[in-house]
């Protein structure tokens, strides 16, 4: 059984928990994964999102999330104007993804430094989300916990060093998942933690041999 604020709550901008509040959270996660001010957003919508996004304000909700607004922020309704004011270009198109959840979005973001990221996620009901893919890596990220993502080469010993760094800072791992493009190639280690991961840990993990990048995504 869930908690009481899942029943009387959440406080949110309507009209739909899945098509509006969940869409804000998808945008928020994509923005956090980009980790800098976005200047361009190309959003592809699948299934029910593609069919009904205008009526539910799913488009405004996604943009609002990318801008960093929370699901209860009354600026969501005007997020597109705010995005234009802040110099963010955006576009929406429809896409069909084989066997995907009906409320799936692919969010391609470009940041002010030129950094790009492609995030695929689904709004799975009640405002809850699932981030399914980040830059080609399969993940499973709810946004309920702080997360650390480690991009590394698929060789023995990397996990040991990363988890050692976490354990010394008393960071408890709640969920962990590995995926790789193929054996010995680029791999992604996804760790959801009970505590926020301090910058020292991130820096230490970046120094680990065979690790190419480390970044954190706060809970939303």
């Amino acid at each position: 059984m869930r908690g009481m604020f899942d029943i009387v709550g959440p406080v949110m901008i309507g009209p739909s928990s899945s098509h509006t509040a969940g869409a804000v959270r998808l945008g928020l996660m994509a923005g956090k994964i980009l980790g800098e001010q976005p200047v361009k957003a190309e959003i592809k919508l699948h299934g029910s999102f593609a069919q009904t996004y205008r009526g539910h304000g799913t488009d405004r909700a996604l943009i609002a999330g990318i801008l960093g607004f929370q699901p209860d922020d009354e600026r969501i309704r005007n997020s597109m104007d705010i995005a234009r004011e802040r110099g963010m270009n955006f576009s929406f198109s429809k896409v069909e993804i084989f066997e995907a959840h009906p409320n799936t979005a692919i969010i391609e973001l470009t940041g002010v430094s030129g950094r790009r990221t492609v995030v695929t996620g689904a709004s799975i009901g009640g405002g809850n989300i699932n981030i399914l893919n980040i830059d080609g890596f399969e993940v499973n990220l709810s946004g309920q916990y702080p997360a650390m993502l480690v991009i590394h080469r698929d060789v023995p010993g990397v996990i040991n060093k990363v988890t050692w760094a976490l354990s010394r800072f008393e960071i408890n791992i709640a969920f962990m998942r590995l995926s790789r493009k193929s054996r010995g190639e680029e791999a992604l280690m996804l760790l959801e933690t009970d505590e926020n991961v301090p910058e020292e840990v991130v820096e230490e993990c970046k120094q680990v041999h065979n690790v190419s990048d480390v970044f954190t995504v706060p809970s939303i």
Binding site: I7, V8, G9, P10, V11, M12, G14, P15, T20, R77
Partner: peptide, 21 residues
């Protein structure tokens, strides 16, 4: 109506039924 016009509500238990409680 506030919900339908993208205003702030408390989903209770859902946004579709947010006016009753």
């Amino acid at each position: 109506e506030v919900n339908a016009s993208m205003g702030r509500v408390v989903a209770c238990p859902t946004a579709g039924s947010c006016g009753i409680l």
